[in-house]
Design a protein around this nucleic acid. Structure first.
Lengths: 246, 246
DNA sequence: CGATACGTTGACGGAAATCAACCCCGGTGG
DNA sequence: CCACCGGGGTTGATTTCCGTCAACGTATCG
């Protein structure tokens, strides 16, 4: 099955972190995909599941999360077009967290079988996907720092910087603005804050002239200022193509 | 170069998460290693470095960390014998964090070149090491939850549960007790707390009869109670050998 | 023996949680 | 058509957990 999207979001994403040969791109284009549409706030994969396929985000936003016993939720990552949030299930049988849509999403399911066969035919692609999961891990590390050691305004600013650059890397930024469908409660669950405090912190960032909002769009008004406020160093995103070891 | 240690700590570690064939074990035993000894609190790899080798912990404890601009430190993981804390540098050229010894350590450096050639000859081993980095990521995710959503006593208890099980998986637990060289300040930097609060939290856990300490040993007095206090679910450690997808 | 690192205790302050209203807006059904 | 509803956002009052500061104890070591 082929995709009507041009360019293929997965290829766009992978090319933001590495170089791809034509035959590798061809192989990726011919990966068998099961397209499905999800409404907002639908659980895609449940904690405890044993998936036999992984899920590529074609459009919309998804997130990974865990619940604590007293019903609190921690969001551990947000995912945009071109990413495969549960790629790890290829080598970890049991889901240790949930995956859910945030907005309505177009998702493409890829069976582990076809991934394995892809890697067999293109061993370098298996390194590229490995690299992809390593970047995932690098982002988690940075989130540990963020929730562990930064006060609320810096924490917020840091998250916004990350989301901005990740959108930019796949061409989803125009005029320093990008689609921002995350509610304040969801930000709270991602940052380890209360929704009330998220609200006040956002007001502070707006008042400091760092960001502005128009409807679903988030606009970065002062990139340098925002980076500074969030102590943001983009190294951990490992975005430069050609960055991987020879 | 061969190791005087029996069994090889790397093999013991990998066998705690997967099954290894005899030829795979042989190949691992013949990996060329550069043994070096480090004193306590020595930086092994610096943030920003471009390593051409990765480092296997033979004995002692190491940790990964980042510094924030105002000089605060966040520890992101602890590592014990058999683990390769900077395996990710195989596919991520730039270190986005530091790696340091906690105690005096015996370390074995493995060049990326020999890892690549090992994976070429034993493709399944590359999946095993990939799996290893995925478990790493799963632990980071759990740490995000821990620092983001749990109050200090639960946070502490959760960390102790994790360290206990990881030591147990490689045979480093006797009589519910294991070597515990982490100072209270270091725990503070791992948990996103102050050293003072760590001190008080530890006293609370001792007073509740959950743990006891004798010198460098930490003893789990009430495993069920500690698990409950930390909302601990070991799924995320993915320890069962045979757990990986066929 | 003093130096130093680690652990412990008390007093105080502050960042963020909680609780509780209230507003705004889009959807929907009587 | 308008009333009602519910989700998201906003605000103020109050509480609490945890940080900071500062002092002191204790053990190890050169």
């Amino acid at each position: 099955m082929n995709l009507a999207y041009e360019p293929h979001p997965l290829i766009r994403r992978l090319e933001s972190i590495t170089d791809l040969s034509q035959s590798e791109k061809d192989a990726l284009l011919h990966l068998p995909l099961m397209l499905r549409e999800f409404a907002a706030d639908q659980v895609i994969v449940r904690e405890g599941d044993h998936p036999s396929e992984s899920c590529l985000v074609i459009s919309g936003m998804a997130f990974r999360f865990k619940m604590t016993e007293d019903g609190k939720r921690q969001i551990m990552s947000f995912h945009i077009a071109g990413e495969i949030p549960d790629l790890q299930s290829l080598h970890l049988r049991t889901m240790d967290h949930g995956l859910s849509t945030l907005t309505p999403c177009k998702l493409a399911f890829i069976s582990h079988r076809s991934l394995r066969s892809l890697f067999q035919q293109h061993p370098r692609l298996s390194e590229v996907f490995w690299r992809e999961t390593l970047i995932d891990a690098a982002i988690f590390r940075e989130w540990v720092v963020n929730v562990g050691r930064r006060p609320a305004p810096a924490r917020m600013a840091h998250l916004l910087c990350e989301l901005f650059l990740r959108h930019k890397a796949v061409g989803l930024v125009t005029d320093h603005a990008f689609e921002f469908p995350i509610t304040q409660s969801e930000m709270a669950d991602a940052l380890g804050l209360s929704n009330v405090h998220v609200n006040r912190t956002l007001q502070e960032l707006r008042a400091r002239g760092l960001i502005g909002e128009q409807g679903h769009l988030l606009k970065i008004l002062d990139w340098e200022g925002l980076k500074q406020a969030g102590e943001f160093d983009p190294t951990y995103l490992h975005q430069e193509p050609g960055d991987e070891a020879a």
